[in-house]
Each structure stands twice: as C-alpha cells, then as structure tokens.
Amino acid sequence: MRLLKDFFHLFYPKLCTVCEDKLVANETTICTLCRHDLPLTGFLDYKNNKVTQTFYGRILIEKAFSLLLYRKKGSTQKLIQDLKYKGNEEIGLFFGNWLGAILKENNEFKTIDYIVPVPLHPKKLRERGYNQVTKFGKTVSKHLEIVYLENYLIRISSAKTQTFKARFERFNNIDTKFLLTHPSFFNNKNILLIDDVITTGATLEACAKEFLKSKNCTVSILTMAYTE
C-alpha cells in the first residue's frame, strides 16, 4: 500500500495551496515556508481584542479569537476562497488542527458546552455540497472534547454571496436571518459560534442574538480569520 501511495504521489504530487509548490514529507495543505508567512492576528487577550471590539454596543460576546488576518489578495484570502469555492475541505482540517491545539493548551474555551457553526441556507448547501466550516468545527471539537452541534441553528433566508460586496453593503444587509429551533435547550449553556471569516460581524451578530434569547446563555466566537 505504501509503495502504491508513493507511486501515485510521484505522478500526482500534493501541492501547497498558497504557492503551489510540491509538498514534502510531513507537510499537509500548506508548505512550511508559507505557513510561517501567514499573517497571525497575535491576539493574546480573548476578552478584549479586535473581534470582541467589533461587537461593542451591539451584542455581548464573552470571548473571541481569530487565527489569521484576512487581507485582499493575501495568502489568507487564497486559503479561504479555495476552502469555500473550490471544494478544498482539507483546509478546514488544517485550521481545525492548528486552532484546536492552541485552544486545548490555553484552556480559554474550557467552559464551552457546544460548538455551533454558522449555517448555510439549504439551497446554498445543496449548490456547494458542504458547509465550509464543518470539518474545521468538527476537528476543533475533537481537540477540545466538546460536542459539535448542527441543525439547531438554521438559516431561514438566502442572501446573495457577500464575498464581493462592499463593506458598508455587507454591514447593512438585512436579508440574512437565522432561527434557533429549540431555544430552551440552550438555557444555562455556553456556546462557541464558529465561522470562516469575520468582517463586519453582522452574520455572527444575527446568530448570537438567537442564542441570547435562551435563558442565561453565553456566546463566544471563533473564526479562522479576521478582516482588518
């Protein structure tokens, strides 16, 4: 079997998602050089950083963390777009393992009861075939030994893709709505909402508002990237 794999990779080598150079042994998804060049946010305070500040005066967020800075035409954008639009779900696994290891070590989210992804509208899910944060969330949940919970938070309106909209238009988009199917289930629970990228925070705010309708429920946020 090993010989067969080596033969296959000889003719179909795995390439780095960022630079497209051939990956060597023990490298997955991204080569070592590109990984070292990724723009880390460097957030040390999980309660007071640029993500939590995004929601000041809008909604109460307990803690938040994003791993990378998202910049136009940068390496983070390349990774997220390949994950989201080119079916490269291995990127979600890569970030899930990276962030899972960080969070397991620092215990910042040790009180979380459930990890919940920002859902896609059923129509969008059928078109794409997958939610881009599913493998990311499930991998983080394994590291932290926290239940990954789908289908309780649902998207009940289908907004057009926000990727190429101006920041002001995204902030003022009121077409996207969410519904928590069993609010009482989350009474006295601590929720970790996950998504790929946070820009204005409008989508995550709408999701968080649903959970905060539950009695004594708290919401924290985790994303792969944060837009400067």
Rank of each mutant, 00 (worst) to 15 (best):
M1T: 09
L3R: 04
K5F: 13
K14W: 07
T17D: 05
E20Q: 02
D21L: 11
D21G: 14
A25V: 14
T32K: 11
D37R: 14
P39G: 02
L40N: 06
T52R: 03
R58W: 09
I59D: 00
E62Y: 12
K63D: 11
F65Q: 03
K78W: 05
D82K: 14
K86W: 09
E90M: 10
G100M: 11
A101P: 06
A101G: 07
A101E: 15
P117F: 14
V118E: 01
K124R: 15
K124I: 08
L125H: 01
L125M: 01
R128A: 03
Y130V: 05
V133R: 00
F136R: 03
F136C: 01
G137E: 03
T139D: 02
I146A: 05
V147L: 12
I154M: 07
S157C: 05
K160R: 02
K160W: 02
K160Y: 03
R167A: 07
E169F: 08
N172R: 12
N173P: 14
I174F: 09
P183A: 07
F186N: 07
L193Q: 08
D195V: 10
D196F: 12
T203D: 06
L204I: 15
K209Y: 09
F211V: 00
Y226T: 05
T227M: 04
T227C: 09
